[in-house]
């Protein structure tokens, strides 16, 4: 490990006492270590372990945010337990996701999927957002179950399914019962249709475009409905163009 461990010791001690308004200068050594950790597994693992120690301790919110930002870059499966414990913490849920969403270990996705069952309120919406941000195809059945949840969560689930845009997501959206997420479901279904079209699956795409065009009707009266009709009609024409 070429990085000077004693410098890192001092920087981590400063981090433990860090708060907003403090001199961030000593933290620069940690930033240097983050860069140096690329391709240096021993340094990366050591740095991750030390940062997780700060996260588990009594450091300030500012210090723990700093940790999460760095774990987003160098974190591994080893970070997942410490981060996932924070997912239902009102003050730290977002920054825990800030790291978990970007950690490419499958354990991070599994932890977020599990958190859909344990988090509450807006933090649950945040978990949806991060699963979608990871492109986690495995969460589609879980998001489908949320389409009947309270409005804000159902809307987030619909938006998430639209971003994932898999055939399974499209099927879940098509099967959704009418409710407060209807508008988000329409947007998501259009995204799925566009994804079908991009994959050359014109029949599936056409089915969605037709259904949305029929729902809007031939003479839309609002900007929103006109935009939906434009989306559906352009999609239908694109299906024809590629036939």
């Amino acid at each position: 490990m070429a990085f000077d461990s004693s410098r890192l010791d001092a920087a981590l001690a400063a981090l433990t006492a860090f708060d907003w308004g403090a001199d961030p200068g000593p933290l620069a050594t940690i930033d240097e270590a983050v860069v140096a950790a690329h391709g240096a597994e021993a340094l990366r693992a050591d740095l991750e372990r030390r940062l997780l120690g700060v996260l588990a301790g009594t450091a300030s919110r500012a210090a723990k945010e700093y940790v999460c930002r760095r774990l987003a870059v160098i974190g591994s499966a080893a970070s997942v337990p410490g981060l996932s414990r924070l997912l239902d913490d009102p003050d730290q849920s977002h920054m825990a996701r800030f790291a978990l969403e970007r950690i490419d270990a499958p354990e991070a996705g599994a932890a977020l999927r599990a958190a859909l069952a344990t988090t509450t309120g807006q933090r649950r919406i945040g978990v949806v957002s991060s699963l979608v941000g990871r492109g986690d195809a495995g969460c589609v059945p879980l998001l489908a179950d949320l389409l009947g949840a309270e409005p804000a969560l159902a809307i987030a689930a619909a938006e998430g399914l639209g971003r994932l845009a898999s055939p399974e997501a499209a099927a879940a959206l098509a099967a959704a019962k009418p409710g407060p997420a209807d508008a988000a479901i329409l947007d998501a279904r259009l995204a799925c249709a566009d994804a079908f079209l991009a994959r050359g699956e014109r029949t599936q795409a056409r089915g969605i475009y037709d259904a949305i065009a029929a729902g809007v009707g031939p003479t839309p009266t609002s900007h929103r409905d006109r935009a939906l009709r434009i989306a559906a009609t352009r999609g239908r024409l694109a299906c024809l163009d590629r036939t």
């Binding site: 987003a72 849920s93 977002h94 996701r97 800030f98 978990l100 969403e101 970007r102 807006q122 933090r123 919406i125 945040g126 949806v128 957002s129 991060s130 979608v132 941000g133 804000a152 987030a156 938006e159 998430g160």
Partner: peptide, 9 residues
């Protein structure tokens, strides 16, 4: 990309 604070998506 980066994770967005809830409830934004």
């Amino acid at each position: 990309d980066r994770a967005r604070r809830e409830p934004w998506i």
